[in-house]
Design a protein around this nucleic acid. Structure first.
Lengths: 341, 341
DNA sequence: TTGAAAGCGTTACCAT
DNA sequence: ATGGTAACGCTTTCAA
């Protein structure tokens, strides 16, 4: 079976290759009869358009780069599906990449996207610093970019959930249940970062009932528990000793909430009977099977995927960088919150 | 900034485009000095090879298609990362696709892979029937194919876990704990399928202590509980009534195991105190945070990803279809199994 | 050691 | 309504 090209179809039909090309694309000035013959022959021969030739001739690839720093978790699987759909719907092809083995040239995922002349790149970020080189690389190539998940810089478009208000709402929810002494469970960090700062600020402001400009100045800051890997249990024991009045926790994220709950259980406490816990991010696949199912802050990931693609095409089609988009968090009430003991 | 091509580099250096091409590819008959100049200029101009032109000229794309029927769960995220790496390591580009919205032409994920002249396709299957059209499409195009996750037909290469022995090992494990009366929890199915059959057969054979040719003939068959969506609780209640001696369950999959445990709890039982449960597949991301963490059958997903890629390249490089690969299941002991009550 | 010419499959532009 | 020609950026083959 020889390769089926437009020329081959033309040969069989006694038509010029260019006529076939036009017929296939539905060009107005090809007779209906010819078009039908061409279409039939194409079908019969199993013709498949060659996108490499097309791209070369058209001078612009149909590819949108999608860089995911991980495929794990409910958030990312939902996101990738949403992005896939949105990009396809616009007639573009998503090229998914992930960070590969360090060192090897092949592993340079961003380089790959650039090589394939991606018209734009969508990128999830966990930590602004980690991805700085990649971001710089993309911007240097003048390829439109949308970051997903974190705020990074003012001059690159990004879309992320409203962490500040997320924590605020979490605290409000706990208060509605009657909790007055609320702790915040986060991860220890060496370099201060915006996300942690927003969350801590939201937490403090919610508790203080007003904006506290310098959160470290607030007496409430001592309520922030910063888990250090492997030391969680000890830290929590210590924390509960020094904060006997605490009856509930807001958390930086769902995985931290789970860890917290596990430690609480190990210390003989029950959730939500003894302590209430609110997570953040709704990133647990089988959360309904957890005991207790985790009440958490969530945002519409489907929609933020669509929005990210929108923002990217705004940049592709016009100049200028659209402003950041902040996704509203809302509460997903499950069973990890109850009135204080 | 004009587009940087080999011709452009040549122009600046007073060299022919073809010389640049050769230098860039490290062709033997270019002087070291020239190569250095070319490399330097390429670097300076930010030259990026155009894979569309290259592919067109070479007549064979560097793309390996990866079709995932879902991105959800630990199994798929681990698999996709493994596949990505293995494919890249061989100098090929993975093109990931997922089933899109039905109807739209863009949604035809397999068509896309074929269009991009994928050298081979890796495909996860959940249910042989669902994917039959896609499989036929790929085979018609004479593109090498490896299926992952299920046995489908003898003449298409596939790689999957050993369900039969998985269930056997699960039962053995329960017996080692002293359980004598063991049930099997699965999903109801309308059309008999191989996977369900293997699991049920493994279960029955393990319990019977010998191979039972027709499993429906065995009195043990009544121990198989087939969950029907939404009716799980009622079914289980009924089941426990008619099988008061049962003290443990093997399960078709982890999600079923979780559902079973939830229902058991709702009926006032505790796991593993009253009933022991073994899952299958190790597909739960935060399984350690479950109560109890689920003991389950697992296989090496990383490795099966690598193997799948191996199998694919065997087909790409030589004729013939390599035999199926069956991944060994092993037990991952967590806390959902204890001696009988 | 370097380069010229042809060709990969398609589209854009201009002619017939 | 149909076709010729050039061009896209690269590699392969052959010539200088």
């Amino acid at each position: 079976m020889a390769k089926v090209t437009q020329a081959e179809i033309g040969r069989r039909l006694g038509l010029a290759q260019i006529t076939v090309s036009k017929a296939l694309r539905g060009d107005a000035d090809i007779s209906e009869k010819t078009r039908q013959r061409v279409l039939a022959m194409a079908e019969e021969l199993g013709y498949v358009a060659n996108p490499f030739a097309r791209t070369l001739a058209e001078g612009g690839s149909p590819i949108i780069g999608v860089y995911l720093h991980t495929f794990r978790g409910k958030y990312h699987s939902t996101l990738v599906e949403s992005l896939e759909r949105s990009i396809r719907r616009r007639g573009y092809i998503p090229l998914l990449t992930a960070p590969g083995d360090a060192g090897s040239d092949n592993a340079d995922a961003i380089g790959l996207l650039l090589k394939y002349r991606a018209r734009g790149v969508l990128m999830t970020v966990r930590n602004a610093l980690w991805h700085q080189a990649s971001i710089a690389q993309i911007r240097k190539a003048h390829v439109p970019l949308v970051l997903m998940g974190r705020f990074v810089e003012t001059d690159v478009c990004s879309i992320y959930a409203d962490d500040y208000n997320g924590l605020k709402l979490a605290v409000d929810h706990l208060r509605r249940f009657g909790h007055r002494h609320i702790g915040l469970a986060g991860l220890a960090y060496d370099i201060p970062n915006l996300v942690a700062h927003s969350k801590e600020q939201g937490f403090i402001d919610a508790l203080a009932g007003k904006h506290v400009p310098d959160l470290h100045d607030s007496p409430l800051a001592s309520r922030i528990l910063r888990f250090r890997d492997g030391r969680e249990l000890d830290q929590l024991r210590q924390y509960l000793l020094t904060h006997p009045d605490i009856t509930a926790f807001a958390c930086f994220g769902d995985s931290i909430a789970l860890e917290l709950i596990r430690c609480l259980k190990q210390l003989g406490h029950e959730v939500p009977r003894d302590y209430s816990v609110v997570g953040h991010g709704d990133d647990i696949e089988y959360v309904d099977y957890m005991t207790p199912p985790l009440t958490t802050m969530s945002h519409n990931v489907e929609q933020s995927g669509e929005l990210a693609v929108d923002l990217l095409f705004q940049q592709i089609n016009g100049p200028g960088v659209p402003p950041h988009q902040i996704m509203k968090n809302h509460l997903v009430e499950r069973l990890s919150v109850a009135p204080p003991r």
